[in-house]
């Protein structure tokens, strides 16, 4: 990777990145420009500058990027806000709460999904009994679990966890089962021939052979878990307010800019975690296996 020959690829990747950035900046500029020239009303549909204001406001900083251009632009008409309030700002608080929920729920999902995925892979009976149902349940949009969660668990943290786990663990189990099935049987035969038995066979061959599958199921599971959590938080109004709640606040106060801002943040977080963590993990494993 650090060979000189890889340098051109890097610079090529950077120029293509810059080009993408330029396209997006041009689109945003056109949107903002159209807004200011035509004069849409900000409470019907926000301009990029309003979304920026709303984002910063959720971080406890009041700005006026969306105000008409003037000598005091982009300071807010009503002064206020300080960086000191960043940690206690609604957005940071919401991110922290959602992150804890996601980590906990995803962990539960992983444990359940791994156990059931392994069962379905190992025992054809378990697969015949559970496989079709899991596949069906996987297609269910996760918010469909909300009424059941409210009735069974009440409007509590456990209700949110239930929706998150139900929304993601079927997908993890199915992805793991399918991935493990792809590991070549010849490796198992080779291992048996070389004296691997019982748990050693699992520990040294079946498990590592399934690593690409595990990495894939992690990635799949995370995206399902994240979507389920946002859906649940949107509906469950609890003392601890997650990112989904902020979306609802935006709706209740008819703050379109905040609604769009929160949606953008959700997209960014989902994408970033996937790219930085799971896609990288998958790529690493695939490279090691010579699959990439």
């Amino acid at each position: 990777m650090s060979t000189p020959s890889s340098t051109p690829t890097w610079s090529r990747r950077r120029t293509s990145g810059l080009r993408v950035l330029a396209v997006w900046l041009a689109l945003l500029a056109a949107w903002e420009g159209a807004y200011r020239i035509i004069g849409w009303r900000p409470w019907l549909f926000p301009a990029p500058s309003h979304v920026l204001d709303a984002t910063l406001a959720m971080l406890g900083v009041k700005t006026g990027f969306g105000e008409p251009l003037g000598p005091r632009w982009p300071l807010a008409a009503s002064a206020g806000g300080s960086l000191g309030g960043l940690v206690s700002s609604p957005l940071v608080q919401a991110l922290a709460i959602s992150a804890v929920r996601l980590a906990l729920g995803f962990a539960i999902s992983l444990v359940l999904g791994t156990i059931l995925g392994l069962l379905m892979w190992r025992y054809p009976f378990a697969d015949a009994a559970l496989g079709p149902a899991f596949l069906g349940l996987q297609t269910l949009p996760s918010v469909v679990w909300v009424p059941l969660a409210i009735l069974v668990f009440g409007i509590r943290e456990s209700g949110i966890m239930f929706v998150l786990v139900m929304g993601s663990f079927f997908a993890i189990a199915i992805a793991l089962r399918d991935g493990l099935r792809q590991s070549p049987p010849i490796l198992r035969q080779a291992a048996l021939m070389l004296g691997a038995r019982r748990w050693k066979l699992y520990r040294h061959v079946v498990l590592p052979a399934g690593l690409p599958a595990v990495a894939g199921s992690l990635r799949q599971g995370f995206s399902f878990a994240w979507r389920s959590l946002m859906g649940a938080e949107l509906i469950f109004v609890l003392q601890r307010r997650g990112l989904g709640f902020l979306l609802n606040v935006g709706r209740e106060f008819a703050d379109v800019a905040q609604v769009v801002a929160v949606m953008l943040i959700m997209v960014l977080i989902g994408m970033t975690v996937d790219r930085l963590l799971f896609a990288r993990l998958e790529l690493r494993v695939r490279e090691r296996f010579g699959l990439a």
Partner: peptide
């Protein structure tokens, strides 16, 4: 392991 085999396709552990 008293009868080891060399397979047609290499069956080396890729990892």
């Amino acid at each position: 392991p008293d009868r080891t085999m060399v397979f047609q396709e290499h069956a080396l552990f890729p990892w």
